[in-house]
Amino acid sequence: MKLEKLIEDALIKAIRILPEDVEKAIRKAEKSESSEFGRIALKAIVDNIDIAREKNIPLCQDTGMFWCLAEIGRDARVNLKKLEASIIKGAKSAALNGYYRKSVVEDPIYDRKNTETNLPPIISYCLTEGDNITLSFLLKGFGSENCSSVRMLNPTAGEEGVINAVVDMMKAAGGKPCPPCFIGLGIGGTMDRAAFLSKKAFFRKGRESELEKKIKDRLNTLNIGPGGLGGENTVLSVQMLTEPTHIAGLPVAMTVNCWADRKAQVVILGGYDE
């Protein structure tokens, strides 16, 4: 199948059906939530997941902005021009054929004219090990994105400083980002690098680290709860990436994803040079 079609299909599915682990975490929360009101919100969310699947319509009307991380193996065969064109065409077709809401405007400050295509996607190209190309997509809704943020901490702030910064940002978010949320953290680098890592973190593989668990547990004591109605399920996962930084700083970035943690991934084995 052509790459742009693979991308289109993955993106059409992603706004209707959640990744398996995400759906599982939500269903588990619905069974375990002790707040009566939190359970009401979770019940609506679970019903919504079922209706979206059954009727084949988007889980949420905010079908998000296309965010794509293109990781290119240093040994991959690649025609960059065609790769870029396929990502853009695949996204454009998904928006049209998948009944995405037209959610992107051209000029952010003045006329805010809709591009009518959901383009441009936000694409970051990175080099990595191996000979594959991996395209990782987030369908970034803005109810949650408006709650994402970066803090530049003092270099001596340490673990407690990081935890407090994240707790502070989540308190400010409150019920706005459609909790229970999925949290991406980027720590280190520069301000922009930390922000980038906080999105890349959603594709981090492997087991939950000790600090991720500590942060998750702290956030779940805030009693924001599902739908902001209270309860212990404020976040269902925290994923973190760290990188070297400057002696004078400790950047901490948080990306908030709503419960509809929509993602897609397309892996092209050996590269793409057709």
């Binding site: 969310i45 919504n48 009727k55 889980l59 949420c60 109810g143 459609c178 902001g228 509809a260």
Partner: peptide, 13 residues
Amino acid sequence: LQAYGGCGALYCS
């Protein structure tokens, strides 16, 4: 009144 966030498919119905 608060509607349940993210539940677009539910409200569609």
